[in-house]
Amino acid sequence: MDLLIDSGNSRIKWAYSQGGQLRAHGSAARGAGIPDAAQAAWQAGPCPTRVMVANVAGHRFAVQLDQWLQARWQLVAECIQVNPDQGGIHLAYAQPERLGVDRWLAMVAAVHDTTGPVAVIDAGTALTLDVVTHDGWHEGGIIVPGIELMAEALLRKSSGIQFGTQGDMAATTTGPLGTDTHSAIEKGSLYAVTGAIEHALARRGATAQSGLSVIICGGNAALVMAELNLQCRHVPDLVLRGMQIIKGGG
């Protein structure tokens, strides 16, 4: 039994892989170290044969994870790297090692789960979109700040924009436009993200008749899906599924 860990910029996800199935899924917000919820879940779970991690959280997290695994199970994590010879995808990047491992694994899982061309969206701290043809050719993608990151950057860099009172911060609107600073920034950030997706796919020539499937994952997937004028399939554990395929040599 393998423990698979997807360590992103703001969250960590995990699942156990056995017999081709993922089970005992979990996730937690990632702070300065390994979240308490993750440690508790791993301590309560079985001792894995090996631990595999897709890490975009940086070297410090990798060191912390290895220290924890050594102390608990005398194991060292196997850190997955982008390998253009695995996964059945011909990457568009001239330097494949510069592609985020989470993007690669999400594409691997999406391609193995569809028969035609597929667009893969990861709506997390950053929002990424990648398109892969029916025969596994990666056409390329886009990266934009995610909804929260975009809003935070606007507030941090614009001293004239203030949320104002606590009541203003708590205000919400169900209409298409914001009715206070907080909701206006939220709406603007959401529309910027979804507009980027739809514009990129329109420029690519993706239409309802093109047979393009759209698969989405990430913490803001539900929010983005609700606003897109596209038929999307939500696969929350897409990166973990990609890890499972790679570990099996797929």
Rank of each mutant, 00 (worst) to 15 (best):
Ile5Lys: 00
Ser7Gln: 03
Ser10Cys: 09
Ser10His: 06
Trp14Ser: 14
Ala15Pro: 06
Gly20Thr: 03
Arg23Asn: 13
Gly26Met: 05
Ser27Arg: 09
Arg30Trp: 09
Pro35Val: 02
Asp36Ile: 00
Trp42Gly: 15
Ala44Tyr: 03
Gly45Thr: 12
Gly45Leu: 06
Pro46Lys: 14
Val53Leu: 12
Ala54Val: 14
Val56Tyr: 08
Gly58Met: 06
Arg60Phe: 03
Leu65Gly: 01
Leu65Asp: 02
Asp66Ile: 04
Asp66Gly: 08
Gln67Trp: 07
Leu69Ala: 08
Gln74Tyr: 13
Gln74Gly: 15
Leu75Asp: 01
Ala77Met: 02
Ala77Leu: 05
Cys79Gln: 10
Cys79Asp: 04
Cys79Lys: 05
Ile80Gln: 01
Gly88Ala: 02
Leu91Ala: 00
Gln95Tyr: 01
Gln95Phe: 03
Arg98His: 05
Val101Thr: 04
Asp102Gln: 04
Trp104Lys: 03
Trp104Pro: 07
Leu105Gln: 02
Ala106Asp: 12
Met107Thr: 05
Val108Gly: 00
Val108Ser: 07
Val108Asp: 04
Ala109Arg: 03
Ala110Thr: 14
His112Arg: 08
Thr115Glu: 14
Ala119Gly: 15
Ile121Thr: 07
Asp122Met: 03
Gly124Ser: 07
Thr128Pro: 05
Thr133Gly: 08
His134Pro: 05
Asp135Pro: 01
Gly136Val: 01
Trp137Leu: 12
Glu139His: 13
Glu139Lys: 11
Gly140Met: 01
Val144Met: 04
Gly146Thr: 01
Ile147Met: 08
Leu149Lys: 06
Leu149Pro: 12
Met150Gln: 10
Glu152Leu: 15
Leu154Tyr: 06
Lys157Thr: 09
Lys157Asn: 12
Ser158Tyr: 01
Ser159Asn: 11
Ser159Asp: 15
Gly160Glu: 07
Thr165Gly: 02
Gly167Ser: 12
Asp168Glu: 14
Gly178Asn: 04
Thr181Asn: 04
Ser183Tyr: 15
Glu186Arg: 09
Leu190Gln: 10
Leu190Ser: 13
Ala192Val: 07
Val193Phe: 09
Gly195Leu: 15
Leu201Val: 07
Ala202Tyr: 02
Gly205Gln: 05
Gly205Cys: 06
Ala206Lys: 01
Ala206Asn: 00
Gln209Leu: 12
Leu212Glu: 14
Val214Glu: 08
Val214Asp: 11
Ile215Asn: 06
Ile216Met: 14
Gly218Lys: 00
Ala221Asp: 12
Ala221His: 06
Leu223Tyr: 04
Met225Thr: 13
Ala226Thr: 02
Glu227Lys: 11
Asn229Trp: 02
Leu230Ser: 06
His234Ala: 03
Asp237Trp: 14
Leu238Ala: 04
Leu238Ile: 04
Val239Thr: 11
Val239Tyr: 10
Val239Ile: 14
Arg241Thr: 07
Ile245Gln: 07
Ile246Tyr: 02
Gly248Asp: 15
Gly248Met: 09
Gly249Met: 01
Gly249Ala: 07
